[in-house]
Structures are given as C-alpha cells and as structure tokens.
Write a protein that binds this DNA or RNA. Structure first.
Lengths: 259, 259
DNA sequence: CGCACGTTTGAAACTGCTCAAATGCAGTGG
DNA sequence: CCACTGCATTTGAGCAGTTTCAAACGTGCG
C-alpha cells in the first residue's frame, strides 16, 4: 500500500493532506479540535515547508544540532536515538506518519537526539518560531500545542510503566498494540503492517536484547497470536495480545501502603 | 477538604519566595530567563493561589478528576501514582520543592494520576486558564511554558532509558544523584537529605522490588558510598555513584551503527 | 508491652542476557 | 542467472541478576 500518489517531484504537501494522512496525529489535533477557521488554517498552512524525502538511514537531525523546526511525518517512519555514556545507541522513540517530531528539543534549543529514517520517508517542516508566533495570535492553537506536549508527557509516563515493570512478552505486546493503533488511526490496517525497524531497534527500544525480541515473536507465533515473516507482521488475535498487557497474576496483595 | 481561603494561618506565598525556594524549578525558569518585567511578574503573581498545607497521605488530586490548575511545590514532596490494569499502584514521579506539577494533565483535561503528599507539604496553585491567558499576553511566558514542557519530555526520555535498560544498582544510583541534584539546586545539601518516600515507592518508581532496593542500599553502604538509616541518607562518594551511572563494562562493541 | 507495619534478610525459581553458532536474506560480482 | 559475501535474524546453552516467597527484624504507636 505505498500510496505515493503524485510521483512527479515533491508535490506541495498541504495541511489538508496531512490532516487526512494522520489522525493519531498531533498535527491533526493541532487544527481540528480547535476549530481553526479557514483563515487560521491557511495561516498555519503557510508556515509549513516541505522538504525532500529522506532515504533509509538519512537523518532528519543530529544530536546537538540547533533546533529550529518541528517536523510532521507524512509517510514512512523515523526513529529517535541518543547515545548513552558508553557510546551505545538507545532508541527512544519511533515516529509514524502524522506524528509531530522534535518536541523534546524545544527546551534546550538543541536536538537531544538523532532522528533517522527507517525507510524512505517524507516529512514537512513546521518552523518553530513561526508556529510560536502563530500560537500567540491564535489562542486555540496555543492551547492545542500545550495539549499535545502534555499528551506526549502522559504517553511517556505510560511507556515508562510498561518498560520499567513488565516482562518481555508484555512489552512487545504493548508495543505491537501501540503500533497497530497508530496505524489504524492513520487509516491503515490495524492487523497487518510493516515493522520498518530492525529487531535490534525494536529490542533496544523496549530495553530487550534482540534475541529476546526474536524469541518472544516466536512464542507469540506458536500461540497463534500473530504471524511474522521478515518485516511483515499480521496480528491474528488482538484480544489475546491485549490480555497479555495486564500482568499475569494479579496478586491480591495491595501495593502501596497509603491507599 | 475544601480549600480554606487562606488566612493569617497560611502566609501568602509570593512569587519571590517561590523563586528563592526553587531553582530546579520550573517556576523559576518560568520567570527568570524570560526576563519578565516587574509588571509581568506581578501579573503572574496575581494568579497564584495559595492553599493550605497537605499532610502526609493527603491528595493534591485524584486520578480522573478534572484538571484546572497546575501546582508548584513549595515545601515537602509528592508522588504521582497511577493504577495499572491490575489495580496495582505505579509510582511515576516524585515532586520536590520548586517543581511544577500536573503538566501531564493538560492534554486530557483530566488528571491521569493521583498525586499524594509524602510528608507535610505545601503547594501553590497556578490556575491553568489564567496561566494560559497570561502566556498569550506575555510572549516570553509562552515560550517558557513550552520549554518547560519540552524539558519534561526530555527528562522522561532519559528516565526511560535508565529504567528500561540499566541494572538495579545503576537505577538507584541515578535516582539518588537526581534527588541530590534537585535538592542542591534548591539550596539544600546535595549529600544529606531525607528520603521522604518509602522503600516500596522507591522500588516501585524504579521498577524494582522493594527487597531489591533494600539490597542495593546495603551494597552501596558496604562499598562505603553512602550511609542510610531509615529515611535519612548521606551520600559519601558522589563520584563513585556517578561512575555507577554508566554501564559496568563498556563493551567496545557498538550497537546500531554497524557491528 | 505488644501489635502493626515497614524494612531487611535468606533461599529458590525464573527471566532475560551473554556468548556462540546456524540459518536466512539481500546486494554484489562473476 | 547463479554463487558469494555481509548482515540481520534465529536458535541454543549457560549464566547472572531479580523476583518471589517466607520469615526475622526493628521501630513507632496505641
């Protein structure tokens, strides 16, 4: 389903297209719920810049670079990686179409991570100074911007819980469901999609060794919950995966003293 | 539990006091670097509401409650907890004096977590609608708000890495150093402080069993890196703890890039 | 003084990691 | 078009670190 319509050169990506493309989508959320008027929408549209597609491995930005613009993924996918004290890469996020990328860079004015294309990917730019300016002029936009960032914080907290406490199977299940959801919102199949990232990246993101990731996939296949071959994946039993989400045994024992 | 309009009993907390009290401090960052003028500062000050001190176990807000105001910790400490699918508590954050609390609630207009005092704690309120309004009027404030949120996202990503990948000793070391830093910025000792949270919460936050937490403390004590007795803690060798931060053996092998 | 709770300790079971090697896939050159 | 080579993925076995269960300990509080 590589829906690259106009293949001519780089057709001007318009806000409207992006809205269509993404619902998970921060950018969509940026406009829709606010009820931005035609004028405002156009104003927002004007500040969007297109850029030429990235090929696999190309970087959107590198760690430490000055931050000037947010990006919205139009098609393809990206990963954010940082380098820890030992010089090892750490995957901290995957970015799917429609998602707003670079929010973590605003604070320091510099990119705290390197963002790299996992496949051929096109993005559009949202120069921050302009966005900021616009947010001042359009009250609803400011609020939306804050909301989106807040949501990102919220999501990070959720992720934190997942990765911090859950077992390997649960982590992978949750990630798969997350991807599924994000693809579905974008209008793609929620059960069949392509894992554009390597097992290595997948494992790295989840805090698992690639071998473990592989083994969990195998276990899930044996259970008949999904089918993977290479990068293609088909989820056969979403309910089962969701069941996996919760911890196996709910200890009746109440945690947390206070309550 | 209704807000008792402050009276003689609770002295009006002024922005100036808060600035003094907190440097780690989101709120301080909210004003200082922007170079808010006297007028603006006063405007900000006007929207701050005091509230009466919380006792240990009191809640600032509960999961699901409508969100209306951010809070700044003035003294004491809080924890944010959510409940997972199994009804178990999950500590997702600790909040020390000077820190801005509630940023994750903006997006959904409802609190995604319960925030509870770990000890006697006073906070002041920062009604969000007013803050928002003010941010529109004061360009620098808008930017600062975005920055702070961005920083929160960034910090969460860092935490994620820590908790996801590191071993128990590293997690605890990193947390202790983080607390140390946050206390130090507030003007308190960076080496001696009180762990207002229980071992249970500590472990829960780090994704460790309380027993493990306890054992790691013991190991650190045997190494002479710190001294704990009950809730009081003294860090004796910050450098050693920092060394712990990195992974034990730096495998020359690098991930990601090419192996 | 003793109960209750949080903390610490010990031992066993389990999970996921590391190391090592086989397999599969893709891009290259013959 | 096929064989070759490099890389990613898979598989297996052993080991290390954490969790879990169970019980002792200590402290604060009634």
């Amino acid at each position: 389903m590589t829906a690259v319509s106009g293949s001519a050169k780089y057709p001007k990506i318009r806000l409207f297209d992006i809205r269509k493309a993404c619902s998970t989508c921060s950018l969509r959320e940026l406009c829709l719920p606010v009820g931005l008027g035609r004028e405002d929408t156009e104003a927002l549209e004007r500040i969007i810049e297109q850029s030429r597609p990235l090929r696999k491995g190309d970087r959107l930005c590198s760690l430490g670079q000055p931050f000037t613009t947010l990006h919205v993924v139009y098609s393809g996918s990206l990963k954010s990686i940082t380098v820890d004290h030992n010089g090892k890469d750490q995957v901290i996020a995957f970015h799917l179409p429609g998602e707003l990328v670079g929010l973590d860079a605003i604070g320091a004015d510099r990119h705290p991570s390197t963002i790299e294309a996992l496949e051929t990917t096109s993005v559009c730019k949202l120069p921050f100074v302009h966005l900021e300016e616009l947010a001042r002029q359009i009250p609803g936009l400011q609020r939306q911007l804050l909301r989106i960032m807040s949501k990102e914080i919220f999501d990070d907290h959720e992720l934190l819980q997942v990765v911090a406490r859950r077992k390997a199977e649960q982590r992978l299940a949750i990630l798969l469901l997350s991807l599924s959801q994000r693809f579905a919102r974008r209008g793609l199949s929620r059960t069949r999609f392509r894992l554009s990232m390597s097992r290595h990246d997948l494992g790295n993101f989840l805090g698992l060794a690639p071998e473990t990731t592989s083994r969990v996939f195998k276990r899930f296949m044996e259970l008949g919950w999904l089918k993977v071959s290479g990068k293609e994946i088909e989820l056969l039993d979403l309910a089962a995966l969701q069941g996996m989400t919760a911890k196996p045994e709910t200890t009746p024992l109440e945690a947390g003293g206070g309550r």
